[in-house]
Simulated scan of single mutants.
Amino acid sequence: MDQIDKSYFDDELLDFFDIWMKDHGLTEQTQKAYLGDIRQFLKSASAKQITEIESIDIMRFLSTKRQRGAGDSTRNRCLASIRSFFNALVEHKYVTNNPALNIKKSKIDKQQIPSYLEGDYLALFIESIQGKYQIRNVSMFLLMSYAGLRVSELSKLNISDYNKSNAILRVNGKGRKWRIIPLPDQLVYILNLALDARIQPKKKSEQAFFISQFGRRITVRTIQKIAESNFSEFKKKHSELLGKALSSHKLRHTFATQQVIAGTDIRTLQELLGHSSIQTTQIYTHVGDKQKQEAMNRVIPILPKFQSVSK
Results as ranks from 00 to 15, higher is better:
G173M: 05
K174D: 01
G148S: 08
I199F: 11
L191E: 03
G131M: 03
G148Y: 06
Q207D: 12
K204L: 10
K164C: 06
T219E: 00
W178G: 10
M144T: 06
K164E: 10
Q207R: 14
A167Q: 15
E206L: 12
Y162T: 11
I135S: 09
L191T: 06
K204I: 14
K202L: 14
S155H: 00
L142R: 11
Y189A: 13
G173E: 00
E153K: 09
I211F: 10
N158P: 03
L187Q: 05
N163R: 13
L142H: 02
D161N: 15
K156Y: 00
R150D: 00
L149T: 01
E206F: 03
A194K: 01
V188H: 08
E153F: 07
Q200E: 12
A167R: 15
K203T: 07
K204W: 06
S212W: 02
L187D: 04
A208I: 07
D196P: 00
S139Y: 09
L149K: 08
F214C: 06
Q134L: 09
L149E: 01
R216I: 03
A208V: 04
L195N: 02
I211L: 10
R176V: 01
Q200D: 07
I180M: 13
K132Q: 11
N137Y: 09
D161K: 09
Q207N: 13
L143E: 01
K203I: 04
V151L: 08
